[in-house]
Nucleic acid binder design. Structure first.
Lengths: 220, 220
DNA sequence: GAACCATTTTGTTGGACCAAGATTCGTAAT
DNA sequence: ATTACGAATCTTGGTCCAACAAAATGGTTC
């Protein structure tokens, strides 16, 4: 069934944005029941090949890269020390490493958004909410690059990053230290001071590293 | 629905190989119809998280990596220009950006492996095999970092990267230019010349960029 | 031990209804 | 007569139900 629909798409030469026939049309076209067609559509949707909106119908899409990464967001796994250091090194590479491009592209809007996001940290919600905000901050930072592949990667790693943040921050105050570190990073951005930006961001990531290590020591 | 089933799995602590309740059980458990449950199961199956066989029922699995590959085997659709540039920029960030760490960690064994891999390029197999070797080369390069998170990301992006390679190289000779570029990169590594390494690697990636752009121009 | 049958479970079908967006059409105001 | 607005209708995906087909298991019988 999935194959038939794929063939249909290929045959008609449909491309991203085009609409598919309605589910009922597909039923008659392929002599299948609507439930069967629906299951096939579910699969195509899961593959990111179609987007389906109620009352609108299905349209061709290509979110496969994002879907591919979604696959791995199902991890509830425990974060090992190696995973932690790997992910943190990765983030350093991405966030600190792309400082130049960030400086090239950054707008006042970006800076305002970052200040706003960081402001939420100071409001002092519980640790889970604060972690989400923390993640959002870094995500927003990376989004300045306008690179969907990198954003997708960040989405994949979100569960792990969140866990790292929660774990690393149990004994630190989000309201004070993390907030201040973020603030320093944004200040450097606002001043278009690349070196300060890199230095402070790296320090911020390193502090998370140290806290996590201490946690692990304590746990072991 | 998918979320509910996921929660159920997490809650029960089920792991690969374990069986899920039957569809009808899930119906009563979640107060949903069998069709709804089935559609959710299709999604999970599409994600490679469950395997479902008649009479047996559904068992937990983890074929997510395999699924990630399947996603892109659907290729009647091609890599969009944005996906291409995103992925390529990402690779630049990773490979060129981690030059320092690579220099710190590299061993003679790494260099020997890279030379060996690149040697296969000169053997001049068809474009698909050559692309695989090309990918393997860059994968091996990144593996020097010993960072599993980054390696996983590379695995997921493999289908896209392969496609980019195939597309970019249709008119170039793997046996000559790509081989020579790689060789230059390894030579820089062998000489522990970080700047040369970065310069050559970046140039290598950029050439792929240019070729792809030309392809797109030609197609348009 | 092998052939056979009953049972369980997924696979598929056809139908039905709902909710909500899209469309149409009639009415009223200008 | 034309336009604007609102209500009725149509369309479409979302959900549900009941039933049958097909496949694989497990037990039963010879």
């Amino acid at each position: 069934m999935v194959g038939q629909i794929r063939d249909l798409i290929a045959e008609k030469g449909l491309t991203v944005g085009d609409g598919l026939p309605t589910e009922r049309d597909l039923c008659t076209q392929f002599n299948a029941s609507r439930n069967t067609v629906r299951e096939a559509m579910r699969i195509l949707k899961a593959y990111g090949l179609v987007e389906v909106r109620p009352k609108i119908g299905a349209t061709i899409a290509d979110n496969r890269l994002a879907r591919a990464f979604d696959l791995f967001s199902f991890n509830t796994m425990e974060v090992s020390r190696k995973t932690f250091s790997d992910v943190q090194a990765f983030r350093d590479l991405l966030e600190v490493g792309s400082a130049e491009q960030i400086m090239d592209r950054i707008t006042d809007r970006d800076i305002a958004d970052l200040y706003a996001l960081n402001g939420k940290l100071a409001e002092g919600a519980d640790i889970h909410v604060a972690s989400e905000v923390d993640y959002d901050f870094h995500y927003r930072l990376i989004s300045i690059l306008g690179n969907d592949a990198i954003l997708d990667v960040y989405k994949v790693m979100k569960p792990v990053i969140l866990r790292i943040m929660q774990k690393g921050k149990t004994r630190r105050s989000y309201k004070t230290e993390t907030f201040a570190e973020h603030q320093g990073v944004i200040d450097a951005l606002a001043a278009r001071d690349r070196l300060a930006f890199q230095y402070r961001l790296r320090a911020h990531l390193m502090i998370g590293f140290k806290n996590f290590s201490d946690e692990m020591e304590g746990a072991a």
